[in-house]
Design a protein around this nucleic acid. Structure first.
Lengths: 171, 171
DNA sequence: CTTGACAGTTCAATTATAGAACTTTAGTGG
DNA sequence: CCACTAAAGTTCTATAATTGAACTGTCAAG
């Protein structure tokens, strides 16, 4: 499967992985949330090669996650800022950071602590149900086919006999 | 930067990206949450090459995200199941799926809908503050250095004059 | 008129991934 | 006994992605 095919899959996870599922995109986006905006800033903060950084920034702009806006004329210079689509990635970033805080810290503890401005306390992010407000777990979720569901790649390609039975599943 | 170095970074996001930040790991984990457990199951559902699948499964086992347990003797066969560490990835997966549902769907709508068993309603996941229960946004969060904070790579490698000023930042 | 910053581009060398065939252990049907 | 199938990998070559380093173009300052 190529990256482009990934974008076409009838799966919201696969389509999002097509955007952020590589070694660098999430790190670049972390820097965006840390208020880095310029090429040199990303490059020196991350140690990414300039070649790849240019490529990834282009891709994120093409996908509508970043916007490239001029901040000076002569010589023309641009900076990269998060669009709303980009800002909406924050829950993903926070969930990732929280998992790292829980499972990947060394003896010395967390690299960063987060304060929720509106309540003033150090907090952890919790994923809850939009309807009842209770925390969401894998076992507590039942999945139904939606309008955008297609027969998955594997089942479509394989002979009829090989089709896997469908079942309610937790993603 | 190599994958191994990524694991060492004093950043919970980088360390988590070292685990799931490639083309396939998240898709394999999606299948795990969809109750796939066996080699052939992953392979036919994803279309990943067998070579890479074997490698990724090994990696996820080594990192403690999956456990490899025998389900029959002669011939010895094993299946892969999520550990608690793996189950804890669910908020990341759900956040990713939700972003895809919001920003990457075609005209036909979402591939899947999610029902929250305990309240019986179709829902979206919302990230809230563990302390006050209010939704978390990038702008509403203030970051403080934690005990595991080290001077970042870039600042440590560069001459003193080039050190970037520290600032409270939103990741 | 030389130096430096910024935002890239170019190119060779190294790694990773894709695609396909092959291996091992065992069960099944004839 | 023999061919065929299945699961779970392994091995191999070709192709694609990434790295590392140098190079380009525009302007400003000294």
């Amino acid at each position: 499967m190529k990256w482009d095919e990934l974008e076409e899959e009838p799966c919201s996870l696969a389509r999002t992985v097509a955007v952020i599922g590589d070694r660098w995109s999430l790190l670049i986006l972390r820097e965006c949330f840390l208020r880095t905006r310029r090429f040199e800033g990303f490059q020196s903060a991350l140690g990414i090669t300039r070649h790849l950084l240019a490529e990834r920034l282009k891709k994120l702009v093409r996908l509508g996650v970043l916007r490239r806006i001029p901040y000076q004329e002569s010589p023309k210079r641009h900076e990269y800022i998060l669009t709303q689509k980009g800002l909406d990635l924050y829950p993903i970033i926070m969930s990732i950071v929280h998992w790292g805080d829980t499972h990947m810290v060394d003896e010395r503890g967390r690299p960063l602590l987060h304060e929720h401005k509106s309540c003033g306390k150090m907090f952890d992010p919790v994923l809850v149900c939009s309807e009842c407000g209770e925390p969401v777990t894998a076992k507590g979720v039942h999945v139904h086919p939606g309008p955008g569901k297609r027969v998955p790649r594997a089942a479509a390609d394989l002979p009829k006999a090989a089709k896997t039975k469908t079942r309610s599943r937790a993603v």
